[in-house]
Design a protein around this nucleic acid. Structure first.
Lengths: 372, 372
DNA sequence: TCCGATTTGTTCGTATGTATG
DNA sequence: GCATACATACGAACAAATCGG
């Protein structure tokens, strides 16, 4: 429902949630809002009216419209002993996310908490919407996988507000650099390094790498890929690095690989480093089209050791990802913080971020060139 | 303060308090009120708007403005600004469940609700624990996939309690027969029939079937398998029916198939009907071990048209499962019930259970024997 | 205390969009 | 398809309260 008054309403509400307006601070006057949003006074009043009704603002004739003080309002709702943890991920159904969610859910439900699930579909607007919901209603803690972590995040203020409201949060798989939050993730740079080095040690030197460029995992894996080449003094053909955005993930990598494999191409790679198993499986389809045998004709390394790695005919060499264990650990940490907060700041065992060390799982999709 | 809109407001409120308007009775339309009080429409709307906000009236576009039912408003609605739907499934991370959850989550979050997730891991004790939680705390509705639906359920009383507390629930994929609940599922018997018939029509007569025996889907698919044989006058070798429980799903079917394929076996099937794609993929591994080519040497049909069907080298012929659409529909139905309950029992559009008709998706894992 | 500028409150008119029956 | 009823949005005018000078 995209009505004008709703847009105005959301815009004002966002400002409040971002902390741009402090309690009892005067917000813009109706006539100012008319100019800002280019709407009639009627529309502005409608928007403000609803916000007043929901307890976000109050009006004083002659004086102005003011931000309401919601601090003691929360206490009213606070007597809900809900024990509720929110999990925000980019996707729900794809790939390794279900496993992460399962890990967290099972741990939390064992401890009497329950899990509310939100999926941003990699869209910052959705992320904001959910953070709004979490700030408005009662949640004890949040486990969040950042949306487009490589790109600067427009919702930083919402996270700062979480901190102000004492709602603990943990980031998984990646984090927003600006926040320096408690996080649980893999050492993706090392992962990229290991998988590339594995191929180099097998004698490959023409290795094409496919990396997502809008999350931090992708950029770090790429960094590892480059570092491995440097350390082994292997020059990188710039054309061998293919980066793509989440939106392009079903098209660009496949197309680029096709181009490289065409007979006219003068740059046929002997090995592939894939951003993850999901992409690797897609690339396997392309290789099959070109009648290339894996690993005889070409080697390929995946990432995440997902179920996909074992499902295809050629079992993938890949990097281990903790998945469910990561979910469980995130759940464990968030509960620790909550319990600490509850008993008071007495003995804050300083929790620190966790960086999983990657390990290579060697299967059938890579082979040494030197055995020839 | 005698403003016009206040006069209108008081007049309507009085009529309600006098009992002139019964709950859910339509009050005069805006244009009628304009005439009665000789004020502009805007003024009427302002008056009605405040009454709606105070819970005296509710509006329905196109229909009219109605007197609200204030009888149970005080206690319940005051507690519940949450808009929270629970989803209980057997598993979270496996297979098609993530897609179902995604469908429901995206629909619900669009409509301002949020999703709490519970996974029973196919254990009745967990199911009971979650139902307890849902009864104790506030949830607006429940979408549930029954645990071990083929076995009589020890938690029937909890479901009856849900009904008593007016918490609507919908069952997906299967249902407990005793409850006759609103449900959304596939016609699994027909699905089993179609997949088996497909093989029969291709000339197969020695078809082994693998079916789970502790959920209703498995027993129904088996029923369809038998019916297809009967209808085409093909005798069934009892050894060709393999049933297994959820606990055995990783072992028994694979072992049984191995036995059948061993050289010493006198009963090598020419085709396989698999409970689902997940199992079919596992069985494909076995066939590969025995160096049997699919579909040249043996045909196999899956079920659910999951991503697994397209991920292996041999793309599976399988039965379509609505997955995300099923989740969306469940979410839609539960919201309809909730909205109906809110406005009162006025016009219960009778919702009824949905039975998806299965369709065969033909890919590369089956072939006709008659082309030889 | 009054003035005037500003800001919200009340009321009218008009038009078009959308859901219901 | 049509009439009805509510939803959204524009414009205009005047009233009442506030606040700085």
């Amino acid at each position: 429902m995209q009505t004008k008054y709703n847009m105005v309403k959301q815009a004002i509400k966002s400002k409040i949630l971002e902390g741009a307006f402090q309690p009892h601070q005067k917000i813009s006057s109706e006539s100012e809002l008319m100019k800002q949003f280019e709407v009639s006074r009627h529309t502005v009043r409608l928007a403000i009216g609803e916000l007043v009704n929901d307890g976000w603002l109050y009006r004083e004739q002659g004086a102005g419209t003011f931000c309401a003080d919601r601090s003691n309002l929360n206490e009213k709702n606070h007597f809900t002993p809900q024990k509720n943890i929110a999990i925000i991920t980019t996707y729900i159904s794809d790939y390794i996310f279900p496993s992460i969610i399962r890990g967290a859910e099972s741990y939390l439900s064992e401890h009497g908490y329950h899990v509310s699930l939100f999926s941003t579909n990699n869209d910052h607007d959705n992320e904001r919407k959910f953070l709004e919901k979490i700030l408005t209603q009662h949640f004890d803690g949040v486990i969040i996988e950042p949306t487009k972590s490589a790109i600067s995040n427009p919702n930083i203020n919402y996270y700062l507000n979480l901190e102000r409201e004492n709602i603990p949060y943990i980031m998984i798989n990646a984090y927003y650099d600006e926040l320096e939050p408690l996080s649980i993730m893999m050492d993706d740079e090392k992962g990229g390094f290991i998988s590339t080095e594995h191929l180099i040690q097998q004698g490959h030197s023409n290795i094409v790498g496919f990396f997502k460029n809008d999350d931090i995992q992708g950029t770090k894996r790429l960094k590892g890929y480059i570092k491995a080449h440097r350390q082994h003094n292997i020059p990188i053909n710039p054309n061998n690095i293919v980066t793509y955005s989440s939106a392009e993930k079903f098209s660009k990598p496949v197309e680029e690989l096709r181009k490289m494999l065409e007979p006219s191409s003068d740059n046929r790679p002997s090995a592939i480093v894939s951003y993850n198993d999901e992409l690797a499986i897609k690339l396997l389809d392309v290789l099959r089209d070109f009648q290339l045998k894996v690993p005889t004709d070409i080697s390929i390394v995946g990432y995440d050791n997902s179920f996909l790695a074992e499902v295809s005919e050629v079992k993938l060499t890949t990097i281990e990802h903790p998945k469910a264990a990561l979910g469980t650990l995130a759940a464990d940490m968030i509960l620790q913080i909550i319990e600490q907060d509850k008993t008071g700041t007495g003995k804050q065992t300083e929790l620190s971020s966790v960086l999983y060390q990657p390990e290579l799982v060697i299967r059938d999709s890579t082979r040494s060139l030197e055995n020839d």
